[in-house]
Design a protein around this nucleic acid. Structure first.
Ligand SMILES: [Mn+2]
Ligand SMILES: [Mn+2]
Ligand SMILES: [Mn+2]
Ligand SMILES: [Mn+2]
Lengths: 218, 218
DNA sequence: GTATTTAGTTAGATTGATATAACAAATGTT
DNA sequence: AACATTTGTTATATCAATCTAACTAAATAC
């Protein structure tokens, strides 16, 4: 079985591939906050276990087996986040740090029970898809808000990144998954947008925020 | 902070003291399923950290600080067991193994939330007391069933040991916490008892079972 | 196209948790 | 009391996960 450390590496490799395409040793080491030699030696270890494909100085790739294991760790993480939010009343900004630890619990019945109690949720509290028990992840291909134009009416469906700071920001603006947003204008200079939602007639959102808000058409 | 390994040692020291009085290296090593040199070196480590009192060849004792830390780990364990049983529908025979892992999660808000959602439970699913947040444990001084005599009417309040096998046995006899038991007779030869409870008019229980059933007078 | 910078690797050390082998102390038995 | 058994200790080794220092390959800049 994979140790907690190995699970964290697999998860990081999976997520970085999604976000950045190719994955390098330096990205891995900074993501996991370890030194490059540490990441390098774990990469050799994962290679030996057949979970990645790797040649010196080349990008790191997960094998099919590695992908599946990564997806199952991500499943444990996201199910936990959903459980914490839905059944224990935690805010979406609180769940990640706890899930980062609980994802390493080795107990299939525990996570199956969460899944059942939650009625087999498809997404976590940040709108990210929960892989199924076979390690298959739905691709929910939402578009970021900044790709929309004035007049578009959309619904907040997910977040591209979900740092605590960003989630606190969204809380302060009362933005939640499901919030219906109308695009009023786009500032060509800096890509910021003016939108309305709920009873807020005119809210300015920076380009950085708009890129991270993943929405679907209404 | 204490590592998961250190937490397991503290917990074992605390529980063994309760069950056996003095705690030796060999008891510790067999309880934790490690070699004696391993237990010996961890004892040195805990000594250095001021969590135990120890002199070569003498019994091991927890310091006040060690006792408090042990009690807080036990609190996390028993709160988790109660949460799993009450909120997630696990049987009392399923909760220990999961709690053995979750007890090492480092997140005060997580365990405080469990405590709150459970309405500050005083006991775990096996009737053992849950230490409070200050590390104080109530002494519920129940007596084992085998110390009772024919004619006594008692209520099952806790279990002296709670191995999966024993819990499976109790399930098979439909014995639960709260079950009201009437002592019909005691066999002087082997200490076995005949009792009645619910609609069972005459159930034989071995001495071994009767020692482990902790009851209170009705 | 050489020089500089960045990224990656190797070597070597450390720490925590574990083990086995060998020996020593304490305890139990006759 | 002597011997045998059990318990505990020390010495030494391994393994996973980490680090720093030194070096090398690749990428970028000029
Ligand atoms: Mn998360
Ligand atoms: Mn993690
Ligand atoms: Mn337990
Ligand atoms: Mn444990």
């Amino acid at each position: 079985m994979a140790s907690p450390t190995e699970e964290n590496y697999l998860k990081a490799l999976f997520n970085l591939k999604d976000e950045e395409g190719k994955v390098s040793i330096s990205e891995l080491s900074s993501t996991l906050e370890v030194s490059m030699p540490t990441a390098n030696s774990m990469v050799k270890n994962l290679l030996k276990k057949g979970l990645i494909i790797y040649e010196k100085y080349k990008p790191i790739e997960l094998t099919e087996e590695g992908k599946k294991m990564a997806a199952l760790v991500i499943r444990k993480h996201r199910l936990t986040e959903m459980y914490l939010a839905e059944k224990m009343g935690f805010g979406w900004e609180e769940v990640h740090d706890i899930a980062e630890q609980i994802e390493h619990i080795n107990s299939p019945i525990f996570f199956e029970r969460m899944d059942k109690l939650l009625n087999h949720p498809k997404i976590d509290p940040h709108g990210s898809p929960i892989p199924n028990a076979q390690g298959i992840i739905a691709d929910l291909k939402h578009k970021p808000l900044n790709e929309h134009k004035p007049g578009d009416a959309v619904k907040l469906a997910a977040l591209a990144h979900s740092s605590t700071e960003f989630l606190d920001f969204l809380n302060s603006r009362n933005l939640k998954l499901g919030t219906e947003i109308n695009v009023i204008s786009v500032e060509p200079f800096d890509g910021s947008m003016v939108v309305s939602y709920n009873d807020r007639k005119s809210e300015g959102l920076s380009a950085k925020v708009c890129e991270r808000l993943l929405v679907e058409f209404l």
